[in-house]
Amino acid sequence: MKCGVVVFPGSNCDRDTVYAVESAGGEAFYLWHKETNLRGADCIILPGGFAYGDYLRTGAIARFSPIMKSVIDFADKGGLVFGICNGFQVLLESGLLPGAMMINKTLKFLGQDIFIRVEETDTPYTHDYYQGSVLRIPVAHFEGNYYADGDTLNLLEKEERVIFRYCERDGKISEKGNLNGSLNNIAGICSENRRVLGMMPHPERASAPILGKSDGFAMWKSLLKYFGEVA
């Protein structure tokens, strides 16, 4: 399994993501935003960071990078595209996923471990989890308050495209566990064909026992298994 990790100016989780993929046994390489060749990647990852400084709207300029045209073509042809944090915001801006991000309801940067519940396991990214599992995982964002209009939300729910929801430690879905104020506690959603995934929390930061956080590791294992590289 070869992951191409896109580097925008201002990306800052690109190296962490490559390290996490490699530590799970996958192959990963960097794709510069001015390139257009995806170099045979099986999965494109848009990493966290502050692409172009996020001075307009988060992700708003990154979507116009040369590489994004190739990424959108790739996704349209059924390719796997995974956006984490700022990468999720880029997916929303580029229309690969529906909705938008608003500033956290606390009006502050949110940098801490939170809990999310795995809602669906029928994606290439989550099939190694049990449905309903609660993951402890770091978030680090200022604009992670997911918003979509009522019709879109209904569609996402009906098609079971909400993959992760913010929750309390015991898995309870509540406002208390929803620190950034996202609608329907949405922490991650997928595309209609379930092959494009965007999530605000950082699985690459929860992939090493020495850090006391490894609940994100199964995402990389899911991907490897999807490509038949792990029994």
Binding site: C13, R15, D16, A20, G111, Q112, A140, H202, L211
Partner: peptide, 30 residues
Amino acid sequence: REWVFNQYDSTVGTDTVFEPGYDAALMRVK
């Protein structure tokens, strides 16, 4: 000091073994 530390990204870089609030911060070197 959580109110302070929670506004900082303390986990980017994936090297932070002891996060803010400990006697000393501890970083791994990959």
